[in-house]
Design a protein around this nucleic acid. Structure first.
Length: 641
DNA sequence: GAGTTTGAAACT
DNA sequence: CAGTTTCAAACTC
């Protein structure tokens, strides 16, 4: 060991000493259960003390609230360790001896000497606790750095030493939570998850009674329950190796600094200015002014109290954005510091509902300007639809309780609302008669034209797209008759897609599965159907049905300008809901370029419109890589494939 | 600002 | 999958 190493180590030891001193000297008697106690993980130690991170974190953590949590932490810990975690300590010791279990070891503070918080006393210990850097953050590395730098810019007054500690506390809590959520949600046998979830819930209550946020210990408890499967995921990386695969592309979060930008795009500039200002104000001022922000249109912030902003109840979480200081939420985990937690919870949520983070509004991209209507500063296509439809019983779809109304779109047949009086378009009272449509398209055209001047049709053009996204998702199995393979069609040239469509029409009349429950033909453009895996016969089937549908649409909507919908040149590239629009699957280009495919180019593109819209967290290339990897590894698994 | 209503999400 | 509970936003007073 050379001189520099010795010096560095001494400095680290000294720093750690100061750290402990700080811990023991600032224990606050007033334990606030709503403030997260930091839990310390080895990774955090590393992050805290490694030279490259000290500066970053010193710059990043400047939140008084976290400082408070840091102070209360030891006492909470002590109580917990004595009364609650005693039974776990033996296992903890065992596991601590095993290599590559960083996060578990880091969480053992509660079971041993609380004062030391299981912090290693020397740098070598830090190193031993830390997994190889490359494994730690497959997604978030640069992201967190950006978050920190962003925070640093907005809150320049925090002193670096305190910041280190605070950041440590903050991150340690994060790691624990990440461990929890991963354990709770990913790659586990459902039955085990259930059982464990139940146990954990009991632990939660117990922990809460000690004034300790349960999540801080969830991971610890969980990790002691023998979930080896999670081990394989690596303690720190976001890699789902279990049976449940996320629709990876939707696992996007919006970088903190981008959120204001996002708001800007969907709200009056004055309000945007307020948001920006809010982000630069002190927390106290933020809270005072938060109410205004919450009440503002366009960039609402949440007020969650019990969901920890990790469920769809939370508007921010549901929108794929982090909560900001302007939110009035409590126990919020939807923050960059808990990035992995958030990602994991998104994964859980999407496991439950693959379209959970899909934009709420589906828009037909072929809307002509005349087909658009203005609402505030936003142009919303009148044929936009809520992805799932509403279920209103009392609000008559004329209040913001109604998701359709709130989104500024009309109700459609996918809605299960009662007494609909949606000003953007009432739910049609009667369902179009498909048989009539098929049998007499010209009549249908007339019908369409007639209705286009009426209330309903203004919002309801059922022949253009699916009633609901759920339905879309459910028709991935749609398989047009095998004789209608485009390959045959294209190569022979004897049957163009229109012919194919007409042939199909006859069959589809008898194939009720093709029709949505509402009686409308679904577009086969669900995210599921847009998978890159759709090649060969499947893709041909898809294309065939697409062309058919396009034909039908053209037939039914003669006013729609042709070629207004450019073909998807990137194919799969645009399948992600978070990328806001879905295009027809990329069929082999030579097929598309054939004369018969010309029709395919019109009217088939749909925009997944969410307001406000948010760009993905992960760079596009990364998303694509994830997509491809996911596609290769998990064909047929849940998600947008 | 507190209390109520509402419907989506989550849970059983 | 239907019924129930939980949750947070919207709404009312």
């Amino acid at each position: 060991m050379n001189f520099f190493e010795v010096t560095a180590r001494e400095k680290e030891t000294e720093r750690f000493g100061e750290f402990l001193q700080c811990l023991s000297g600032n224990v606050d008697d007033h334990v606030e259960s709503d403030i997260l106690g930091g839990t310390f993980s080895g990774e955090q130690h590393h992050e805290l003390f490694s030279p490259q991170n000290i500066e970053l974190q010193a710059a990043g953590a400047q939140n008084n609230k976290l400082g408070a949590s840091f102070q209360i932490f030891p006492e909470s810990l002590q109580r917990y360790s004595k009364e609650s975690l005693g039974s776990l300590s033996k296992e903890s010791v065992k596991e601590a001896d095993q290599p590559h279990r960083g996060i578990r070891r880091h969480l053992h503070f509660g079971t041993h000497e609380t004062a030391s918080l299981c912090l290693p006393a020397r740098q070598t210990d830090f190193e031993s606790l830390v997994p190889p850097h490359d494994e730690t953050r497959t997604i978030s590395g640069s992201w967190q750095a950006r978050s920190c730098s962003q925070t640093a810019k907005s809150r320049p007054s925090f002193s670096p030493p305190a910041c280190e500690s605070v950041r440590a506390a903050q991150n340690c809590g994060n790691r624990a939570v990440n461990s929890i959520i991963r354990s709770e949600s990913v790659g586990s046998e459902p039955s085990k998850v259930k059982k464990l979830g139940s146990n954990l819930h009991q632990q939660e209550e117990k922990l809460m009674s000690y004034g300790i946020p349960f999540l801080s210990f969830y991971g610890e408890i969980y990790s002691h329950l023998g979930y080896e499967q999670h081990e394989s995921q690596g303690s720190f990386s976001y890699q789902s190796s279990g049976s449940i695969q996320p629709p990876c592309d939707s696992l996007h979060l919006i970088p903190y600094e981008q959120q204001a930008t996002l708001c800007k795009g969907t709200m009056p500039s004055s309000e945007y200015a307020d948001i920006v200002e809010l982000n630069q104000m002190s927390p106290e001022r933020n809270r005072k002014k938060a109410k205004y922000t919450i009440k503002s249109e366009g960039c609402r912030r949440c007020k969650c109290k019990r969901s920890r902003c990790l469920k769809l109840y939370c508007e921010c979480f549901a929108a794929g954005i982090y909560c900001l200081d302007t939110c009035s939420c409590e126990n919020c985990f939807n923050k960059p510091e808990y990035e992995e937690t958030v990602l994991d919870m998104r994964q859980v949520t999407e496991t439950r509902n693959p379209l959970a983070f899909a934009p709420k509004v589906v828009t037909n991209a072929t809307n002509s300007p005349a087909n658009m209507m203005e609402k505030g500063s936003l142009m919303k296509p009148s044929s936009s639809r809520h992805k799932k439809g509403c279920n209103c019983k009392k609000s008559k779809c004329s209040k913001k309780y109604c998701e359709c109304f709130q989104a500024g779109v009309g109700c459609c047949n996918g809605c299960r609302c009662e007494g609909c009086y949606n000003p953007y378009g009432k739910k049609p009272e009667t369902i179009y008669r498909r048989a009539e449509r098929w049998n007499n398209p010209s009549q249908e055209q007339q019908h369409s034209l007639l209705e286009s001047s009426g209330d309903c049709i203004k919002a309801e053009r059922p022949n253009q797209f699916s009633s609901t996204w759920e339905e879309l998702a459910g028709i991935g199995h749609l398989t047009p008759p095998s004789h209608c393979l485009l390959g045959e069609v294209a190569s022979s040239g004897s049957l163009n897609t229109r012919d194919c469509s007409k042939k199909l029409a006859g069959q589809l009349q008898q194939e009720s599965s093709v029709l949505s429950p509402s009686g409308y033909l679904n577009w086969n453009h669900s995210p599921i159907s847009l998978s890159p895996k759709l090649y060969g016969r499947e893709a041909l089937h898809e294309l065939c049905s697409d062309s058919f549908l396009c034909d039908i649409m053209e037939d039914a909507t003669p006013e729609t300008p042709k070629n207004t919908c450019t073909p998807s040149t990137e194919g799969v590239k645009s399948w992600s809901p978070n990328q806001k629009w879905v295009s027809p699957p990329k069929i082999r280009s030579h097929e598309l370029r054939s004369g018969s495919s010309q029709r395919l180019r019109s009217g088939c593109k749909f925009i997944l419109q969410d307001l406000p819209s948010f760009p993905p967290l992960t760079p596009y290339s990364k998303s694509q890589a994830a997509i491809h990897q996911n596609d290769g590894d998990h064909k047929g698994s849940t998600g947008y494939q």
